[in-house]
Simulated assay, not measured.
Amino acid sequence: MLHKLPLDHILFLDIETVPETEKYDDLDPVKQDLWAHKSRYQRKEDQSPEEFYERAGIWAEFGKIVCISVGFFTVKNGERQFRTTSFFGEEKELLMEFKNLLETHYYGPQKILCGHNAKEFDFPYIARRMLILGISLPEKLNLFGKKPWEIPHLDTMDLWKFGDFKHYTSLKLLTNVLGIPSPKDDIDGSMVSQVYYRENDLDRIVTYCEKDVVATAQVLLRLRGEDLLTPQAIKHV
């Protein structure tokens, strides 16, 4: 069935997140206490909430989105292309722009969102941040009352699991074993917060995010048994 899915019906996406404030001390006392409680099982015994705060971007309640990159297949002059673009900057504004994209171009039941580990991270994170910021959910992210087969989400990590619920495979590992050029040639997820807050280099984060979107599309092509995109077929718009 996967090979029958029209590629131009799929919106590929990836997000980059950081802690909501640069430093733990910038949180108010109530939020500091909540962070200590939330992270208590993830921290090592000798690790304080303050030391662990650099990982706060993983949780939507303590982080924020700084970039959403998307990509889609199209045909130009008879040649297949994959086009990428990004929403970045102030969080509420980028979420509104992303919502507008979903509601104007990806609103039909045949349209699908796709990411790597997106069912566990990207999709719920976006939905939670929208609600926290007072943004009503677009239909593609509003899952209440829907049956599993009615949810228009595709996850390349899910596809690679083949039903094995214990199996986690990073995008970097999957691209390696499938012979796809690695997207992790500059920074990785653990460095995004530093690049954002200390280096103030959002452009570098956007480039990294878009590479992950391209890599996810390449993984789907390999899972369908199709040729990979050439560098000439990948366009930033």
Rank of each mutant, 00 (worst) to 15 (best):
P148G: 09
T207K: 15
T175I: 04
F165Y: 05
D188G: 12
D185F: 08
G179W: 09
I180F: 01
P181A: 02
V206G: 05
I151D: 01
K161Q: 09
L174Y: 02
D185T: 15
L159I: 09
D188K: 11
D164V: 09
Y196E: 01
S193A: 15
L174G: 07
L202F: 08
D201F: 12
T156S: 01
R204L: 06
L173Q: 12
F165A: 14
F162T: 06
P183W: 07
F165S: 14
E150G: 11
P181N: 03
C209E: 08
V206H: 02
S170T: 14
I151H: 02
T169F: 09
K172V: 09
T207I: 10
E150K: 10
K184L: 11
L159C: 04
D164R: 14
P148Q: 12
T169A: 13
D164P: 07
L154H: 01
L178W: 05
W160D: 11
K161F: 00
T156F: 00
D186T: 11
D164N: 15
G163L: 10
K166M: 10
D158K: 12
Y168A: 09
R204I: 01
I180V: 01
G163H: 07
S193L: 06
T207S: 14
L171R: 03
Y168V: 13
D186H: 03
R198W: 05
V177A: 07
Y196G: 01
Y196V: 04
I180D: 00
V206K: 07
K184N: 14
D188P: 07
G189I: 04
L173C: 09
T175E: 04
D186N: 13
T169G: 10
D164S: 10
S170F: 01
C209Q: 11
D203I: 06
N176W: 12
K161G: 02
K161R: 15
T175N: 07
E210I: 08
T207L: 13
D186C: 03
P181H: 02
S193I: 07
T207Q: 10
L178N: 06
Y168N: 13
E150T: 06
K166V: 07
V195D: 00
P148W: 13
D186E: 14
V195N: 00
T175Q: 02
V206L: 10
R204W: 03
G189A: 04
H153R: 08
W160V: 11
I187F: 08
L159M: 12
K161N: 00
S193Q: 08
P181V: 04
Y168M: 09
S182V: 05
M157R: 14
K166P: 03
E210N: 12
L202P: 07
D185H: 12
K172D: 15
Y196I: 05
V192G: 06
S170H: 03
K161C: 02
R198Y: 10
H153C: 07
F165C: 05
D155R: 10
S182T: 14
V192Y: 03
Y208G: 00
T169E: 13
